[in-house]
Nucleic acid binder design. Structure first.
Lengths: 332, 332
DNA sequence: TTGAAAGCGCTACCAG
DNA sequence: CTGGTAGCGCTTTCAA
């Protein structure tokens, strides 16, 4: 471990003051070309790198934003990160990621850690935190990602259009000529469950169709739950000829049930999922599914944040809703 | 945005010196119970949180380690992160993750960023960096993760036992009575390709079987490549009755080919994968596959790093090889 | 049991 | 075009 070089050392070796070294680096005031060259040479030779802690302490800006997510294993979040980086890196900002597991304690701990580290802004997909927790951290611009109600006191909210996403899938099923479209959703009030179910109902209503309540089932977001629910629906006297599912795991379970009954997908039964997890394209038949445009969402978060990091009067908090897209494969 | 409170403010409100506030917080010297209580009360009331930048500048320790990975979308890395956090958080360290995309430029940029941010240690899964790049950052303890040769100058190396992993799968196929075991691997010299193929050859050799070179194919790490390779193997006069694959995508392609030929898996053809991606359990039949114990690897990285963050004489660099495990599902 | 003050490495104000 | 120096918020020695 080599002791790092500091600016004073560079200055004395180059025969100039630290002020000059600082300005060579920042370009915030003109430096004679000759001096500039010497300084840069010394920097190069010594392998000098400025200490960002000291910079941050002095300038009160760390050029860093934090991203707090519940589960990095969910590929949605890495994609969000990528989208953020696409707009933040060119603006000179780095992003640090915190993986919380979704518990309030962990979220709180990371949130506090980020603010004490003096990040310039935070994007958070909060699951456990309440309004008060968030309010306690308003020292730094905040953008909320995904869940919850918009609340101007808590800063910007960026979310995807869950309701519109399912509606899109259901419209697709209707356009393909399916007569009886069922819906298998997650537990009521959990995450986006309510919005997704609303999307199903809205799409039917817009097509002038009645919603048959026994074609709507609420269960868990798992493959097994999907299979069980599908078996019940398909065992009826008048089974549906299409099922829109609230996520891909449920849809894969529906595929299992169809296979077990010898049904051909999509002819006997069309199936749509939601999320576009990796398995959606790997399963047979490939799953037609709704995609959260994660990178788009990441970009929107970054773009919401950016003016608040610099501008004096960044304008009032906003809610931004990003449209989803339908990926067509074989299942519908 | 509220201006944050600093220690001086806490001190004056509590009617004590900053020294005392500091010691209340750090516990590094006794403070009268009464003073302690007042100070804590003021801290609570003002919502004071110490500025870690200033702390780090002063103490030269940030209690932070960096993790540099090529692709957070690969679930292996989030799992590594989790393993690291399991040992680092209790020791008081936070981990910041950098997602590079695997290019040398990005890796270099993040590595520099981490060192200028004064992280106390770095774990890196380097893909593009060369020896020299790494050597330029030896101001801070480094643990390499995954690829490359062990090199004491570059610090610790933690990797999984790729060779042993495939050998495990092949032994499993042999034990299940399969006579002709083929192998479909990735491009030679790419990533872990060579070690994995070596594992296949070793397992056969240890069982006293000859390796038939035309049962070994090198192709791309994709589903399509896997299907194509399997079609060729299965079209032979003496087709194999088992195929060990170098990753799960290839194996899923093999499953496609088997289905197309009307073969029953695992009876007509047994298949094993490598990685245990999410789809491995979602595909039908479920894929028997080799798992990199990512969390284990993360823990090992953290445990290698920890003594180097504190001890004066942390001992020589080491290479640590973590065993893989076989997950049995239906395909073999 | 407590305080005063130096100083970590840097930026930016003031001066020349 | 260049330097001196105060001070960001904290820890830690020295002194009481």
């Amino acid at each position: 471990m080599v002791r790092p070089v500091n600016m004073t050392e560079v200055a004395s070796r180059a025969g100039v003051s630290v002020t000059t070294v600082s300005h060579v680096l920042s370009g915030r005031r003109p430096v004679a070309e000759a001096t500039r060259a010497t300084v840069l040479a010394v920097i190069e030779q010594l392998g000098y790198r400025p200490n960002t802690l000291a910079q941050g302490l002095r300038t009160r800006r760390t050029m860093t934003v934090g991203l707090v997510v519940p589960d990095l294993t969910n590929p949605f979040y890495p994609a969000v990160l990528q989208g953020m980086a696409d707009v933040l890196l060119p603006a000179g900002y780095h992003t640090v990621v915190c993986n919380t597991g979704g518990s309030r304690d962990e979220e709180l701990s990371f949130l506090t850690d980020l603010t004490t580290r003096q990040v310039d802004g935070i994007v958070i997909a909060a699951f456990g935190l309440n309004r008060k927790d968030l309010l306690a951290h308003r020292e730094v611009p905040l953008v909320r990602l995904g869940g919850g109600r918009f609340d101007a006191d808590l800063g910007d909210l960026v979310r995807s259009d869950d309701e519109g996403g399912i509606a899109q899938a259901v419209r697709h099923l209707i356009e393909r000529g399916h007569r009886r479209v069922a819906y298998i959703g997650g537990a009521a009030h959990a995450g986006p469950s309510d919005q997704r179910e609303a999307g199903y109902r809205r799409a039917l209503a817009e097509d002038g169709r009645p919603v048959e309540d026994d074609l709507v089932v609420q269960t868990a977001y798992t493959r097994d739950a999907g299979r069980a629910a599908a078996e019940r629906l398909l065992g009826r006297d008048d089974p549906p000829d299409a099922i829109a599912c609230a996520n891909d795991l449920i849809a894969i379970g529906v595929l299992d049930a169809a296979r077990a009954r010898g049904l051909t997908v999509p002819d006997d039964l069309a199936v749509t999922g939601y999320d576009d997890i990796e398995a959606a394209s790997l399963v047979t038949p490939g799953l037609t599914t709704v995609v959260n445009p994660a990178a788009e969402i990441g970009r929107a978060c970054a773009e919401s944040l950016l003016p608040r990091l610099t501008a004096d009067e960044p304008g009032p908090p906003r809610e931004i809703v990003i449209a989803t897209t339908l990926t067509r494969r074989e299942s519908a």
